[in-house]
């Protein structure tokens, strides 16, 4: 798809690439650096093909996949100007054991169409992580074999890690504790 422009030899030397001011690309996706870590910003459409490229380039494990809800912090840092930010982000961490390299993908997900292609076919290890992201953020993953809630009960309403979901904090009682519990022994 979009990775036909990817330099073929880029995966050998990506850790040593000197930082530049101009927007960089790696494997056809925009590249930024965050504290010495490489971050790619593929679009949703680029994501499946990018995973395939990365898998061929030696990134054999998806170490982590999680969601972030940027509802109250829309002006986030570390995103190139050309990337349109959306409310949700799915963050994928990949590892290349051979080159001891890590790569992080940040994919923007709009709230009114919160879906992303599942990485299950290439990386079966993402199964539980995608289910967790679905459970906590309501982002659905197309092609996932069993997209059900994983941590919350099946009949739970809402997605707890969304910023507009109440954290459920109840005021702590100091007086008038339940009758079951006497004030002293």
């Amino acid at each position: 798809m979009a990775d036909d422009t990817a330099p073929t030899g880029a995966d050998d030397a990506e850790v040593e690439v000197t930082p530049e001011v101009a927007p960089e690309e790696l494997f056809g996706a925009l590249l930024t650096r965050s504290g010495g870590q490489l971050v790619l910003h593929p679009t949703r459409e680029q994501y499946p093909a990018l995973l395939r490229t990365l898998h061929e380039a030696g990134y054999h494990s998806v170490i982590d996949l999680c969601g972030v809800d940027y509802l109250t912090h829309p002006g986030r840092s570390g995103v190139p100007a050309s990337v349109a930010t959306e409310r949700f982000e799915v963050v994928v961490n990949l590892i290349n054991h051979k080159e001891r390299g890590r790569l992080r993908l940040r994919i923007q997900i709009p709230v009114d169409d919160a879906r992303l292609a599942s990485a299950f076919d290439l990386y079966p290890g993402t199964e539980a992580m995608e289910r967790e992201t679905f459970d906590m953020f309501g982002i659905s993953f197309d092609g996932h074999p069993d997209l059900t809630r994983i941590l919350m009960p099946e009949d739970w309403l809402g997605h707890p890690l969304r910023k507009d979901y109440d954290s459920g904090r109840i005021p702590v009682q100091f007086k008038g504790a339940p009758a079951n519990r006497p004030a002293s022994r």
């Binding site: 919350m152 707890p160 979901y165 109440d166 954290s167 459920g168 904090r169 109840i170 702590v172 339940p178 079951n180 519990r181």
Partner: peptide, 19 residues
């Protein structure tokens, strides 16, 4: 853990003898 996931005291579910 005063949040959505945790029952705030098991005495809401079963009677407790010793805390």
């Amino acid at each position: 853990f005063n949040n959505y996931a945790i029952v705030q005291g098991v005495d809401q579910i079963v009677p407790v003898d010793v805390y």
